[in-house]
Amino acid sequence: MVPWYSAFIVGGILCLIGQLVMDLTKAQITPGHILVGYITSGAILSGLGLYQPLVEIGGAGATIPLSGFGHLLTQGTLKAVEQKGLLGAFSGGIEAAAAGITAAVIFGYIAAVIFNPKG
């Protein structure tokens, strides 16, 4: 098991990088850009075999940031390719991410039914 302070430091640093990108680049970076950037970089780093070591050190500190979600997609795809070949490239990513996406949609919809935006 990964100790909590490792998760704190790795997760904190990953967020800090995002903050630096937001504050120091000239173009206007919206949360959407940050999310896309993280999932893409996570997926690519994972493909290069560079993300798994970070998960070993940081645990949730590496899997909870959205780059971890990208890592999950890539690893799911790679594993499925090993088993099913080309079909795996089509199905593996979404299978691996299914729990998270469905949770977000279900909870999102329920929240929309229950709550009103307060602004």
Partner: peptide, 20 residues
Amino acid sequence: HHHTAERQFRFPTEQGVQPT
């Protein structure tokens, strides 16, 4: 109106966005 303008031009009002 702050909220009507926000949701039309920028972000959903409950989204966590840091103002510059």
